[in-house]
């Protein structure tokens, strides 16, 4: 019951390894002096400008494997930009981003490698309307991981079952409700068997009665050990599942703590203001 635990056990130093592996190993070793597993995501003093507007200011964050991080903050705080920098839908101008041991640069091949291991779920679902639900989920495995079609379909059906909509497999996205579409989007991202999942405000575009079904899927996913970075306003989800909550405001990380500490003992005025605005009655 629940998600099959991804076989992403902490990496020991391998006996035989391809040259890229050793490179990644030494990089990872250089970053964290402990003998812990290499962190999944490292943002090191990342700066980004949109024209003259400074949207990310010296953002530094490390996300370990199997860690669940929730990012929150007022609109315009740069949280979506930060998460989109992680799979290079936006590119940063200063600082370093290392994802799964590979540094994010303009190198296209490195980018392809990273995007294969990082799945993303968007606020506006972005399902492909001209393909059925099943085809949406098998498109990338077939064309990127070169999986044979029958196998890809089987795996896609398994994920659709896990998001609890296997009967919609042959429907088109336009025929589904918002909550169903977002669950298909999650299944589509998972079908690539990524190591890291990014969520960019996944429930903000949904009607209230559909938010729960999507959050349930995300909670099960988190409890199965997936590394997750999630931008959301759903504080109940953060409290239940997050290892850390990061509060961003005006492009920089203001506070970063466990959910309990964050919500019970906010240390800065900005966080106090934000919490008062969104935690009405929580």
């Amino acid at each position: 019951m629940g998600w099959s635990v991804n076989s992403r056990t902490p990496k020991p130093v391998p006996a035989e390894s391809a040259p890229e592996e050793t490179n990644r190993m030494s990089q990872a070793a250089a970053l964290s002096p402990q003998t812990e597993p290499a962190p999944a995501i490292v943002l090191d003093k990342v700066n980004k400008w949109f024209g003259a507007l400074h949207v990310l200011r010296d953002v530094s964050l490390t996300v370990a494997e199997r860690e669940r991080v929730v990012v929150c903050g007022p609109s315009g705080s740069g949280k979506s930009t930060m998460i989109r920098c992680i799979n290079r839908l936006e590119s940063h101008q200063k600082g370093r981003i290392v994802v799964d041991g590979t540094e994010l640069t303009d190198d296209l091949r490195a980018l392809d490698t990273i995007r294969r291991e990082v799945g993303m779920v968007f606020q506006s679902f972005n399902l492909f309307p001209h393909l059925t639900v099943l085809e949406n989920c098998t498109l990338a495995p077939i064309w990127v991981r070169k999986t044979p079609k029958a196998e890809a379909q089987e795996q896609a059906m398994e994920y659709l079952r896990r998001v609890k909509i296997p009967e919609q497999a042959n429907k088109y996205p336009g025929q589904l409700s918002g909550g169903q579409q977002q669950r298909v989007a999650i299944a589509r991202a998972l079908a690539m068997k990524p190591k890291i999942m990014l969520f960019d405000e996944p429930t903000s575009a949904l009607d209230p009665e559909m938010i729960k079904e999507v959050l349930d899927v995300m909670i099960e996913l988190a409890e199965s050990g997936m590394t997750m970075v999630c931008v959301t306003h759903e504080m109940g989800f953060a409290r239940r599942v997050a290892d850390r909550v990061v509060f961003m405001d005006e492009g920089e990380i203001v506070e970063c703590n466990t959910p309990h500490e964050m919500f019970e003992n906010p240390k800065t005025d900005r966080l106090k203001l934000f919490l008062s605005q969104i935690l009405r009655g929580h």
Partner: peptide, 15 residues
Amino acid sequence: VPFGQSEAAQALGLH
């Protein structure tokens, strides 16, 4: 074609 379509496709690793 909404820009999000090509973003989603790129996020899946398609070049």
